[in-house]
Deep mutational scan, measured.
Amino acid sequence: HHHHHGSGALAALHAEGPLAGLPVTRSDARVLIFNEWEERKKSDPWLRLDMSDKAIFRRYPHLR
């Protein structure tokens, strides 16, 4: 159930192989992290948004 927010940013994801479903670039990863943060913020208003490279690598090590 993907609803768009204002920016309408869509992340490019790997379609197949071992990385299927994972973001292709760091900016794609940022979109995913932001979208998930927006969702989680509803139940956790104090949740901090962390889109640093460090956060991205921790989450998606293949982007190193």
Rank of each mutant, 00 (worst) to 15 (best):
G6A: 13
H5M: 14
P61A: 03
R26Q: 07
D50L: 03
Y60R: 00
S7I: 13
G8A: 13
W46E: 11
F57P: 00
L13V: 13
D53E: 10
D50K: 04
P23R: 00
L47H: 12
A55V: 11
L49Y: 06
A20P: 02
E36C: 04
G6Q: 10
H2G: 13
D53G: 05
E16V: 13
H5K: 11
F57T: 07
D28A: 04
S27V: 11
A29F: 00
L47Q: 06
D44M: 12
H5I: 15
P45G: 08
G17K: 05
K42S: 10
D28Y: 03
V31A: 08
K54R: 09
E36N: 04
G8P: 10
K54S: 13
E38N: 13
L32P: 00
A11Q: 02
P61G: 03
M51S: 08
R59H: 06
P18M: 08
S43C: 11
A12Y: 11
R58I: 09
P18D: 08
Y60P: 00
I56S: 00
A12V: 13
T25I: 01
V31Y: 10
M51E: 03
E39Y: 08
L32Q: 06
E36H: 06
P23Q: 04
H62R: 00
H4S: 11
E38T: 11
H14T: 03
L19G: 03
A9P: 11
D44L: 06
L49R: 02
L49S: 02
S27C: 10
G8Q: 13
H1D: 12
R30E: 05
P45W: 06
L13I: 14
D50Q: 04
L13Y: 05
Y60G: 00
A15G: 12
L13P: 03
D28V: 05
P23T: 01
R48F: 09
E36G: 03
T25M: 05
A55S: 07
W37L: 02
P61Q: 03
E38V: 11
L49M: 05
L13E: 05
R26K: 15
L63V: 01
G21R: 05
R64H: 07
H4P: 12
F34N: 04
E39H: 07
R30A: 08
G21I: 03
V31F: 11
H62S: 02
A11W: 03
H3F: 12
G17H: 02
E36P: 00
R40A: 14
R26A: 14
D53I: 11
W46I: 10
Y60W: 13
L19V: 05
A55N: 12
L13N: 04
A20M: 09
R26N: 10
E39M: 10
I33W: 02
L32C: 06
P61C: 02
R26L: 14
V31E: 07
A15E: 14
L63H: 00
A29G: 03
G6T: 14
K42H: 09
P45C: 06
A29I: 01
W37G: 01
H5A: 10
H5C: 12
A12G: 10
I33S: 01
S43T: 15
M51I: 15
L49G: 01
H5Y: 15
P18T: 07
D44G: 06
L49V: 07
Y60T: 00
A15S: 14
N35K: 15
S43I: 12
R30P: 00
I56G: 00
D53H: 06
L49D: 01
F57H: 05
L32K: 04
S7C: 10
A15I: 14
V24C: 07
S43E: 05
L32I: 14
R48K: 12
R58V: 14
H14I: 10
D50P: 01
H5D: 06
L10K: 12
A11H: 05
S43P: 04
A29H: 00
S52D: 03
E39F: 11
L10V: 10
L63K: 00
S27P: 05
E16L: 08
H3T: 15
A15C: 08
A11Y: 08
L19W: 11
L19Q: 05
L10T: 12
K54I: 10
H2L: 09
M51K: 04
G21H: 05
A20W: 07
L47D: 06
D44I: 05
R64G: 12
R26D: 07
A9M: 14
L10R: 08
T25A: 06
H3L: 12
R64V: 07
E39V: 11
K41A: 12
D28M: 03
H1V: 12
W46G: 10
F57D: 11
A55E: 14
K42Y: 05
S7A: 09
Y60L: 01
R26P: 12
N35S: 13
N35L: 15
S27Q: 15
K54Q: 08
L63S: 00
H14W: 14
W37S: 02
H5L: 15
S7N: 13
D50Y: 03
D53L: 13
H1Y: 04
E38S: 09
R48E: 10
I33Y: 02
R59K: 14
H4V: 12
A29V: 01
E16S: 10
G6D: 08
A11F: 07
E38G: 05
R26S: 10
P18C: 06
I56T: 03
G8I: 13
H14V: 05
A29T: 00
E36A: 07
P61D: 02
S27T: 09
M51D: 07
